[in-house]
Design a protein around this nucleic acid. Structure first.
Lengths: 225, 225
DNA sequence: ACCTGAACACCGTTCAAGT
DNA sequence: ACCTGAACACCGTTCAAGT
């Protein structure tokens, strides 16, 4: 038993706090998705009544936002150390992709939350690299938005995929089968790419998209200027 | 009173059908967003009990998907007639953007639904133009995915924006104010672009993103080959 | 085959009451 | 200031019963 540091106010049952609530929320969300975050199970987990939680948190939406912030902050904690802005943008995108892979419920939060909450953090960190890319200041907002919106869009898709089934191969097989049964006259393109769906790697595909956008940026805003 | 076309089975109160249910669902969603679609008000509107609806539709999720399909199908009904594949992609993206502006609840459905349901329709119609662009067949899936994921991501953002407040200017002012109050040392980039946020036009910004991706495609897959 | 509507098992949120 | 827990007003969904 460790000696108590400050004689008084030593508690072995940690007090309820916003932090502990958010932490428990993240655990529930990770374990069971968005619908897994319930005040019932949250109160049970924290051994209190709902009123106690509402003392620290305005409502379910705010709790969801706080959980998202916590996870995104952790993802962006380390500054990317790569040598070029392109590589740093790739690294940031990678890290956000991995975060959403680990916490799929974050994706819906991010895409549904407009330019508030966690978005400024992401915008900031991506935007700095857009500046470093040599994009003229007048276009910073546009270019950064495009990158971030692509990241959110792809991340949502990835999250939706990973939600559906644990067995990815089985899932992709099922989709590819559905696709190959579509009317060939109405869906010639889909039928052609069905095999590509089966083989594709989400992460690689995602980064290929980042590269595509980066080369569009280079084409439209040549660095030499 | 018009003469009855087929003597028997003429009804003046139209029978309940999947179509009528989906139609009513779209109206409710348009009027009050995703949380506005409730079996309570749906049964009231259609003057039945919940069981009647469950006879035609498996559950709320399927109904939401069917409503999304209906709206997306309408948006893609007209083939784009523009002269170049680039212009046709722009036109498709525009039309999807407008659809989501009119039915913001569609955005969350599309980004949360993986490669099933409405996605194949969109993939097909965008993908054909990617083919016309001269992208090698091996990259069709990747390139089309990037475009569609960007469209979904940007659309979600737009939907989130339009959900928050009817008065767009007031909303953007509020966000810009929040941004300008962030710690300048931690958020130098955000502070720089805050005025750009105030002035920007979502639709223009969105299409600028499409153009950026299109020029990335041209750079990576030059048409002359 | 299709519809009715009461009932079930949940939700998020509130609030008087306690300490 | 912080916590308790019963109660309220909702949900989606089911199912025996009707036609």
């Amino acid at each position: 038993m460790p000696p108590s540091r400050s004689g008084r106010s030593q508690r072995r049952t940690d007090a309820l706090s916003r932090e502990r609530i958010v932490e428990a929320a993240v655990e529930l969300l990770d374990a069971a998705g968005e619908s897994g975050l319930t005040f019932r199970v949250l109160t049970e987990r924290l051994a209190t009544g709902p009123g106690a939680i509402y003392w620290h948190v305005a409502n379910r939406g705010e709790l969801l936002a706080a959980a998202t912030d916590a996870v995104v902050d952790a993802a962006l904690a380390a500054e990317p150390a790569e040598p070029t802005p392109q590589a740093r943008i790739r690294a940031l995108a990678s890290s956000l992709f991995d975060t959403i892979d680990a916490h799929p419920w974050v994706a819906a939060q991010l895409s549904g939350s407009s330019w508030q909450a966690a978005a400024p953090r992401i915008l900031e960190v991506v935007g700095r690299q857009v500046g470093a890319l040599g994009v003229p200041e007048a276009n910073w907002f546009t270019v950064t938005s495009v990158l971030v919106q692509y990241i959110f869009g792809a991340a949502s898709q990835e999250a939706a995929n990973s939600d559906v089934l644990d067995d990815r191969a089985t899932y992709l097989d099922a989709v590819a089968t559905t696709w190959s049964q579509l009317d060939p006259d109405a869906y010639p393109f889909i039928r052609t790419i069905a095999p590509q769906l089966r083989d594709h790697d989400d992460r690689e595909e995602f980064l290929a998209g980042i590269d595509l956008i980066l080369s569009g940026i280079t084409a439209q805003y040549p660095p030499a200027g």
